[in-house]
Amino acid sequence: MSTFLVVSALVLLATIGAGLVRVSRGPTAADRMLCAQLFGTTGVAALLLLAEAYDRPPLRDVALIFAILAALVLTVFVKHAAIHRHSRDGA
């Protein structure tokens, strides 16, 4: 069972690698940031799998932090973009 879980985590790692193509290609800023978010969700899943496979409960805490911080980064990104637009419109 644990081998299966580790292999699953490896596949998820591979999808992160593939997603990098979209980050570098863009073309929109949303694409890039969203991929960072995607890595968050995928990372959460991989961590949960590893926590079970290696029997390391603290990794579930790491996964929870990933999920919370992904929300923060994305929010700051959107704010950054929104303010940028405001300053352009206001000027």
Binding site: V23, S24, R32, A36, F39, G43, F66
Partner: peptide
Amino acid sequence: TSIAFFIAFGLVMALAWV
């Protein structure tokens, strides 16, 4: 883009610590 990559770098660093 560089910042987006840097954020992803941090995520993978966490996996390295694991």
